[in-house]
Design a protein around this nucleic acid. Structure first.
Length: 733
DNA sequence: TTAGGGTTAG
């Protein structure tokens, strides 16, 4: 052994079985070649000598008896065989015993196991030796465990592994494992120190482990390390380049990522692969840049690389997030045409996209489709479905899916629970939301900032801003960091409860905490000013956000539009709409609804019709509010023909009437003596759980009385009394 | 150790 060490430039005890193991397992541990830098080569030093203490005659006898007993053991239980020795064993006996058991590593580890059970503690040196022995007997899992325990239990463990290496080890792979475990534990500085320390002994960590290290670093450290490690002998591979590309994309440095893709080939001599292109395509998709994503898609094909399900999914995801779910489905067909089979991730993206769209029938179609391809919905698919159903108010269906998941043995994770918690919050079921929060804790899951934001928002919308504030203080005390969404929820709650001053203070707190307000923050505050009639301050906030380079969204403009309308500045509202169209800012139904509503309230149906036609001409789809506004306006202007036309349109599109629209429509029909239709709508309104106005009851009471139907008259009277309406009438008379 | 899907705010 020693002669082998002296012949080896790095002083490793190289044995033939080690070389065999390294090649068999494809461990690219570069230990025999000198590092590329001369200066480094001159500083190479041997591993430290290991000199175990010499045992006394009694100790030697004890160890001899112990190890002989172990070797001769056949079927007797180990604990019984060892029981006479264990009470007398000290840590040093363990290490002497290891010396006797070098060719029986399994027995050495069993001895260690029994010792640990009794002493509940293993000395650091024995722990390091155990890792070497475990690796020698091919037990990589056990070696990992020893190294992990050692690393987490003592700062000097690395030194022990180095110190014991020369005498006990036959395998430098132990350092690769140690390095990897340090990375897994997030101890990146320790990992780097280990790397540097090992280079002095001529050990170079494998490129695979260096990649693991690289993938955990922040962008600046990635770039620095990518330059430094080759100077220490690491030769990067395609995965390394892909990790750098991913890091650049995540840092938003897409141009640099693209340059790096070129460098990969020109300077690294490594051809970009499907992963390189998929990574960079996803980067552009995340940034919403579809044209460049498609350009790279074509480029990869030109280079003979076939886009796979990952590549397609990034494109599908961007389309879904840009409200182009139908186009996303066309991409699915395209991938099928090209012989690329979609996997459950692709289906989950589509399901999530169509859920956001409210297209539940398409969602069911995708679920059937994926099942027919033998793809079982996984936790992410279920979460997308649960979230989608919750958004559509289908909480019972969401609960059914949550139970189904459990029955199928799929464990709901933080994402699933949070989707369900949010669903309950949005449906005002705060008690159920907190019940699930407690259930998460009971199941060992940690509610995260998203979970708490959902709860905060629920409490605020439930009118309990105080409780929301307390909850946030509590979670901050537990070390959870709030994000912009959390603050925005609270700011919104404060605004809606009329505490604008506190809302502004919360914005300052948020900045003090290092979080910049975004378009949501400004839009929320602008809305509060608009609703309080202070359009000037709303305008000031708009200027402030533009100065801070925060882009307004369509909601920002809608808030402003609504502000103009509330303030009776309808002409300014119309001018804002024209300005938006000029600037190619596409209005949506909500933009038009504000104008339609307020012109309708003024019974100016000529302008309402003009605006509505403009909306249709620009292919902006009217929503439920649009139809309700149009019906209400036409009823008030006594245009029952138009009102009934829009009512039939609303029904055909599956929308519902609101209470005020029902009242206006029923009143209008009665005025036109269309009592049968009025009566039918009145019943429909009650079935929908709405309370009719006192005026409507008066109309039906008078109507039935004049018809001589006293029974019905009394029925209406009873109902009106029950709804506490008669008292108001008496007060009036 | 390298690529894609599911949770929060106006």
């Amino acid at each position: 052994m020693l002669s082998a060490v002296s012949r080896n430039p790095t002083n490793f005890p190289v044995t033939s079985h080690l070389r065999f193991a390294a090649s068999r397992l494809n461990w690219r541990l570069l230990y025999s070649a000198a590092p590329p830098i001369d200066t480094l080569a001159t500083t190479l030093r041997p591993f430290p000598e290991y000199s175990p203490k010499r045992p006394t005659i009694q100790d030697a006898e004890l160890v001899q008896n112990l190890t002989t007993t172990l070797k001769q053991r056949r079927s007797d239980p180990l604990r019984r065989v060892l029981s006479p020795f264990l009470p007398r064993l000290r840590p040093q006996h363990l290490i002497w015993a290891f010396s006797h058991l070098r060719s029986h590593p399994a027995l050495a580890l069993s001895l260690l196991h029994c010792y640990r059970r009794r002493a509940r503690h293993v000395p650091l040196e024995a722990q390091a030796i155990a890792a070497h022995l475990a690796l020698a007997s091919g037990r990589v899992g056990a070696a990992r465990q020893f190294l992990r325990q050692g690393l987490t239990s003592h700062r000097d463990f690395v030194e022990q592994v180095i110190y014991t290496f020369r005498h006990w080890s036959s395998d430098p792979f132990v350092f690769d494992l140690l390095f990897r475990i340090a990375v897994e534990l997030g101890r990146l500085d320790d990992a780097r120190s280990l790397f540097d320390r090992l280079t002095f002994f001529g050990v170079i960590i494998s490129v695979d482990s260096c990649n693991a290290f690289l993938s955990h670093l922040a962008i600046d450290a990635v770039l620095k390390t990518f330059v430094e490690l080759p100077l220490r002998g690491v030769r990067w591979n395609a995965a390394s380049y892909n990790i750098v590309i991913r890091a650049l994309c995540r840092a938003g440095k897409l141009g640099e990522a693209r340059e790096f893709l070129l460098k990969m080939e020109s300077e690294g001599g490594i051809l970009p692969d499907v992963i390189s292109y998929s990574t960079i395509i996803d980067g552009y998709c995340q940034a919403g840049d579809l044209p460049t994503a498609y350009e790279l898609f074509d480029e990869m094909r030109t280079r003979g690389l076939k886009p796979n399900e990952f590549t397609f999914n990034s494109i599908i995801s961007l389309l879904c997030h840009s409200d182009m779910a139908a186009k996303a489905e066309m991409v699915l067909l395209e991938m099928l045409n090209q012989g690329v089979a979609p996997d459950s991730a692709v289906y989950t993206t589509l399901i999530s996209g169509f859920c956001k769209n409210g297209n539940i029938s398409a969602v069911y179609r995708f679920v059937d489709d994926m099942k027919s391809r033998g793809l079982a919905p996984d936790a992410a698919t279920y979460t997308a479905l649960i979230c989608g159903f919750c958004r559509c108010g289908m909480i019972v269906e969401a609960e059914r899916l949550f139970d189904e998941m459990l029955r199928k043995g799929l464990n709901p994770d933080e994402f699933t629970y949070t989707a369900m918690v949010d669903g309950y919050c949005k449906n005002g079921r705060m008690h159920d939301a907190f019940r699930l929060h407690d259930e998460m804790l009971k199941n060992g899951l940690s509610p995260n900032v998203v979970t708490y934001t959902a709860l905060t928002d629920g409490l605020c919308k439930h009118g309990d801003v105080e409780a929301a504030n307390e909850l946030l203080h509590e979670i901050c005390g537990k070390g959870l960091e709030l994000n912009v969404c959390t603050f925005n929820s609270l700011i919104n709650g404060l605004c809606k409860s009329g505490n604008l001053e506190q809302a502004l203070k919360t914005m300052s707190d948020m900045e003090a905490a290092g979080l910049s307000p975004d378009a949501f923050t400004y839009t929320t505050l602008m809305d509060a000013y608009c609703k309080s009639g202070d359009i000037t301050r709303a305008h000031c906030l708009l200027s402030e956000m533009l100065d801070r380079k925060i882009n307004p969204t369509i909601v920002t403009f809608n808030v402003l539009m609504n502000g103009f309308c509330i303030a009776g500045m309808l002409e300014d509202g119309k001018r804002l709409l024209e300005w938006m169209l000029e600037k190619k800012i596409m209005p949506n139904a909500a933009t038009y609804n504000s104008l339609l509503k307020h012109y309708g309230m003024e019974k100016n149906m000529k302008v309402v019709t003009e605006i509505y036609r403009g909306m249709c001409a620009r292919r902006v789809m009217p929503d439920e509010s649009t139809y309700n506004i149009l019906i209400l306006g036409h009823c008030k202007a006594r245009n029952m023909k138009e009102a009934c036309y829009f009512h039939s349109e609303l029904t055909a599109r599956g929308f519902s009437l609101r209470a005020d629209t029902y009242n206006a429509l029923i009143e209008g029909l009665c005025r036109k003596k269309r009592f049968v239709e009025a009566r039918r709508l009145f019943e429909e309104m009650q079935d929908a759980g709405f309370l009719a106005d006192k005026k409507i009851y008066d109309l039906f009471i008078d109507l039935s009385y004049n018809e001589g139907n006293f029974e019905l008259t009394l029925e209406f009277c009873d109902e009106a009394i029950e709804k506490h309406l008669i008292g108001t009438k008496a007060d009036e008379s």
